[in-house]
Design a protein around this nucleic acid. Structure first.
Lengths: 278, 278
DNA sequence: CATGACCCATACCCTACGGGTATCGGTCAC
DNA sequence: GTGACCGATACCCGTAGGGTATGGGTCATG
């Protein structure tokens, strides 16, 4: 199977319309129809059920859509990493959620910089859910992820720290002087929970504000427009105006360092060793 | 990057000789040379340093060789899984090492068969190191692997059980009546340790016999031709003639259930849930 | 119920790319 | 110095992949 065929199929499978898919691919519709037919012949499997009005995925097509995305990402990642390996200014790109695990990140950076033979370590802070694709397609080399929030699927990981969670309240809030709160009490406050982006970048429907990273949400808490439960380490991020109250029965959050399998360069191995040893 | 180009590059990178690589690919040498040149132009990177006598990998080439293999496996796996998804006789293929975790495996099979909607579960018993490639390229859906022996890199896993290890001795052996032995004592017995295959299927050099799976080795132990330390669960496999003596300071072995990322079908999810719940 | 919009497949043509053969040019060994 | 070896180049050919025109089936609309 060629990547061209796979890309064509992915476009059709996503659009469920040959015309639109062809436009997206920058080709005409007939060659696209033929390419898909040929792919089906070669695989010996029907991927799409076409009527003269619509296109739908078969069982096999759904599988190929899911697996194909991973395969194309792997091919892209291979190309991107090969290109990057040729650059003389070798560097490692680490992605983390803006505002999460700040001290841990600082410790990792300091610890790695102190290693002999350390190369430049570029830190990219991005929104929730943006790390995984970057790591998958080779734009980043390593990420700090948080279980159980982030999907660790397909990455190699090493556990770093485990923290309990706190609820953030505006300074004057009646509950803000409590020593701890339960999840039930938090829910009873009847403030909207923020909505985090889903895997595909869209937001689930609901009342809460749409947010992309932990940093963003602090403002909303100050304004009393949202309530949020976050890992304990956000304490270091909050200034005046916001109070953190422990929520003992919230799930524990584990910060992990994650990297793509099969890509353990010398520099990456060092970074992982440093991070795991902290 | 097309898979054809990648396959061509992999052949050259492995052979380090255009002529032999071309033969292996079933094409002539000149088109292969051109294809590689074109790939280098497209990536904007030198992958190989050629003299008129020899070919060597550049830094970027080494990266592409490593990453490319994973990418090609992913593409093959996507095709294979799509093909299998179309078969009506849907079934799940589980690979395990012959002779390892036998009771656990039996419990998983029984537990899964009792689930509503369970489909046929085919068990393949294979040698050490054969599971990973099968899982990677789509020939198998799920595997029982043993940490720290097997590489879990690139798979999603769920831990099942942790066991200590025992040393196997022939029944009449002077040490066979001991309650336990240390690793140092085992080493002092001066019997050859068996050699397990490496990732590429070859065996490391050394004096011990070449073995492929735990079952195979029992005979050698009876004959006094080898000594081996294995997870506690082999006890159920050994008949007369062999005695298992605990080795408390041997590393703990964790049996995990592993599956390829992005491929969590309904049946697979059920199987994992059943296994993890035992 | 007829007509048009929509959508995928087919027919047909053309170009460019992938592959083949012959040969060159450079390097090492004997 | 000569031959063996090996990758690159030159040149040719077939076909795979892309384009345009159009067919044919289905649904919506007046």
């Amino acid at each position: 199977m060629e990547t061209r065929e796979l890309r064509y199929f992915m476009a059709v499978a996503e659009e469920l319309n040959f015309g639109r898919a062809a436009t997206r691919l920058g080709i005409a519709q007939p060659p696209l129809s033929r390419a898909i037919q040929q792919l089906e012949r070669r695989l010996g499997v029907d991927l799409l059920t076409r009527t003269s009005r619509s296109v739908a995925l078969t069982e096999a097509g759904a599988v190929l859509l899911r697996e194909g995305r991973a395969a194309l990402d792997a091919v892209d990642a291979a190309a991107r990493r090969a290109r990057r390996a040729a650059k003389t200014d070798a560097r490692l790109v680490l992605v983390a959620k803006a505002g999460a695990s700040a001290e841990l990140l600082a410790k990792i950076l300091d610890g790695y910089a102190a290693e002999p033979g350390a190369i430049e370590l570029e830190v990219e802070l991005c929104g929730v859910g943006e790390q995984e694709p970057r790591l998958r397609d080779g734009r980043a080399d390593v990420a700090l992820l948080h279980r159980p929030f982030d999907s660790l699927s397909g990455f190699d990981v090493e556990e770093l720290t485990t923290e309990s969670q706190v609820v953030l309240l505006p300074a004057g809030h009646p509950m803000s002087t409590r020593a701890s709160l339960t999840m039930a009490e938090v829910a009873a406050l009847d403030l909207p929970l923020p909505r985090w982006p889903l895997r595909d970048g869209t937001y689930p429907p609901g009342p809460g504000p749409e947010v992309r990273d932990p940093a963003q949400i602090l403002q909303l808490v100050v304004l009393g427009r949202a309530i949020v439960v976050l890992p304990d380490s956000v304490r270091s991020q909050i200034g005046g105006g916001v109070v953190a109250v422990p929520v003992p029965d919230a799930p524990l959050v584990t910060t992990v360092i994650a990297w793509p399998p099969q890509s353990r360069s010398r520099a990456l191995a060092t970074l992982i060793r440093v991070a795991a040893g902290l």
